[in-house]
Simulated assay, not measured.
Amino acid sequence: MVSRPTIYITKMTPQTELSHLLYGMEEEEIPGELKENQQLDLIAAAYEQALKSPLEVGIAVNEKQAVLHFKSLPEKEPLFVVDNNEESMMTLGKNAARLVKGIPFKLDV
């Protein structure tokens, strides 16, 4: 069975809520998949997921922030770092999908 390409997402803390992030991605019709990570640092975890993702985009989220990373960027320079709130998470999800699609980002991050 072949799995479809997805953006890889990791939760740094078990209680972290991802629904708004996933809604944003879903609106842009790009799927996300929850994955384990080996990193303790939020930016490093997002980069790890970007390296593993077939779409070359990774996201890491904790209770305070979320990081969107792209495989082609330097490890310590993520594309977006946002506060973990409903509006920012929705926009981050949209922008992750837009990165994959190659269309302009939403600027209200």
Score class of each variant (00 low, 15 high):
68 L>M: 07
66 A>T: 04
15 Q>A: 11
64 K>H: 15
57 V>P: 00
25 M>V: 03
76 K>R: 09
71 K>R: 15
37 N>H: 10
6 T>Q: 08
55 L>S: 05
14 P>A: 13
91 T>C: 03
30 I>C: 07
37 N>L: 06
13 T>L: 11
107 L>E: 14
30 I>T: 07
71 K>W: 04
99 L>I: 13
36 E>G: 00
39 Q>D: 06
95 N>Q: 10
42 L>R: 03
108 D>Q: 12
40 L>V: 13
14 P>C: 04
77 E>M: 12
23 Y>E: 14
12 M>I: 12
62 N>D: 15
59 I>V: 15
106 K>M: 09
1 M>W: 03
73 L>S: 05
108 D>N: 15
42 L>N: 01
45 A>H: 06
38 Q>D: 12
68 L>A: 00
40 L>Y: 04
39 Q>I: 09
68 L>D: 00
42 L>K: 03
10 T>L: 04
25 M>K: 05
26 E>Y: 07
29 E>P: 01
38 Q>P: 00
81 V>M: 14
50 A>I: 09
78 P>A: 01
70 F>R: 07
86 E>W: 04
3 S>N: 12
69 H>V: 07
55 L>I: 08
84 N>T: 07
78 P>V: 09
74 P>L: 11
59 I>K: 01
80 F>K: 10
12 M>N: 02
27 E>P: 00
66 A>Y: 02
78 P>L: 06
41 D>H: 05
49 Q>W: 01
9 I>Q: 00
50 A>R: 02
109 V>T: 08
76 K>P: 00
81 V>Q: 14
35 K>V: 10
6 T>E: 11
21 L>G: 02
97 A>G: 08
18 L>A: 09
87 E>P: 02
66 A>W: 02
58 G>D: 09
25 M>F: 07
107 L>A: 09
18 L>S: 12
60 A>D: 07
103 I>Y: 11
94 K>V: 07
22 L>R: 09
4 R>P: 06
69 H>D: 08
106 K>H: 11
12 M>F: 11
82 V>S: 08
3 S>M: 11
70 F>L: 11
85 N>C: 15
12 M>T: 06
40 L>M: 12
40 L>R: 08
103 I>A: 06
30 I>E: 01
74 P>V: 15
81 V>C: 13
28 E>I: 12
38 Q>A: 11
30 I>M: 04
106 K>T: 10
16 T>Y: 07
101 K>P: 08
102 G>C: 02
54 P>L: 01
16 T>P: 06
81 V>T: 15
28 E>M: 14
98 R>Q: 10
18 L>T: 15
49 Q>Y: 03
22 L>A: 09
61 V>S: 08
81 V>L: 14
15 Q>G: 06
68 L>W: 00
18 L>V: 15
99 L>Q: 02
57 V>H: 02
70 F>S: 01
